[in-house]
Amino acid sequence: MVNISIIAEYMPRILSGAVLTLEIALLSLLLSVIIGLIGAIMRLSKNPVLAGVATAYSTIVRGVPDLIWMLMVYYSAQIGLNSLTEWLGLPTFEISPFLAGVFTLSFIFGAYFTETFRGAILAVPYGQIEAGYAYGFSSFSVLRRITFPLMMRYALPGVRNNWLVLTKATALVSIIGLDDMTRIAHQGGSATHLPFLFNMVSACLFLLITFVSLRIFAWLERHYQRGVRQEESYE
């Protein structure tokens, strides 16, 4: 009973941290999808410079641990920015931990979404794209009405996996001082000497986010698979 009362005392803070975690995850998802779409188009470009830049970005970012990127963006970038403002005689500008966290996660997962969308675009039958051009559609109309809906059928499993990994990667923002639910749970466990209990609460909230996310993606898959014959799934 004592443990329950302690958890109840910290629960409002943990839930506020969970809201912050979701805000970071959703904003990072939006930006990484945009980066991924741009990166995929560049990767498939016939321009060797654009394709080379996108390939280098995807390869380098995915090859370096996420923790290193988080530390580099927040601490190293802050030092570089301070040196620049000092050299220019400008006031010191401090990078917001929230913006640094969102930017870093978007930068990292944009590389993963680049490969996800590139593979999905390549899986779209080119004959259907040609048919769109034959009917007089513009390139944008072909992308919006043919390529994107068909691509999403192939991309959704990868998008789902990237999102699930992204939600867990938000825990990295705790190392730069953001009070997400991982950091608050850790602080609560340290203060009460009940680290296992508080970490279990945090883990259960992550599992809840995962459960709700899987239900949403199941609906999205049914939506984008309309008219396509499906074998029974045992997931």
Rank of each mutant, 00 (worst) to 15 (best):
I4A: 15
S5H: 09
E9S: 14
P12I: 14
L15G: 05
A18F: 14
L20W: 01
T21A: 10
A25H: 05
A25Y: 01
L27Q: 06
S28R: 05
L31R: 00
I35T: 09
G36Y: 04
G36C: 13
I38G: 12
I38S: 10
A40R: 04
I41N: 11
N47P: 03
N47Y: 07
V49E: 05
L50E: 02
T55G: 13
A56F: 15
S58V: 01
G63M: 05
V64Q: 10
V64T: 15
P65H: 12
D66V: 11
L67T: 14
W69T: 03
L71T: 12
Y74I: 05
Y75K: 06
S76A: 15
A77I: 06
I79K: 08
G80I: 07
L81M: 11
S83P: 00
L84W: 13
T85R: 11
T85P: 02
W87N: 02
E94L: 04
I95H: 04
S96C: 04
P97Q: 08
F98A: 14
A100H: 01
A100E: 03
V102M: 08
V102F: 03
T104Q: 13
S106D: 07
S106H: 06
S106Y: 06
F107D: 15
G110H: 01
A111I: 00
Y112H: 09
F113I: 05
F113S: 03
F113W: 11
T114P: 03
T116N: 15
R118M: 06
G119A: 15
L122P: 00
V124A: 04
A131M: 06
A134T: 10
S138A: 11
V142E: 10
R144I: 00
R144C: 04
I146C: 07
T147R: 13
F148E: 10
P149R: 12
R153M: 10
Y154W: 08
A155V: 02
L156E: 01
P157F: 02
P157D: 08
P157Q: 09
G158K: 02
G158V: 01
R160N: 15
R160H: 01
W163Y: 14
V165G: 11
T167C: 12
S174T: 09
S174V: 08
I176A: 10
G177W: 09
L178T: 04
D180S: 12
M181L: 14
R183N: 14
R183M: 14
A185P: 00
G188S: 06
G189A: 10
A191V: 05
H193E: 12
L197K: 02
N199I: 02
V201R: 00
S202L: 10
C204D: 10
C204E: 13
L205R: 02
L205Y: 03
F206G: 01
L207E: 07
I209D: 00
I209F: 15
V212A: 13
V212N: 00
S213M: 10
W219E: 08
W219R: 12
L220G: 09
E221Y: 12
E221V: 09
E221Q: 07
R222Y: 14
R222T: 14
Y224P: 01
G227C: 08
G227A: 07
V228S: 02
R229E: 12
E231M: 11
E231L: 11
S233P: 01
Y234T: 07
E235G: 04
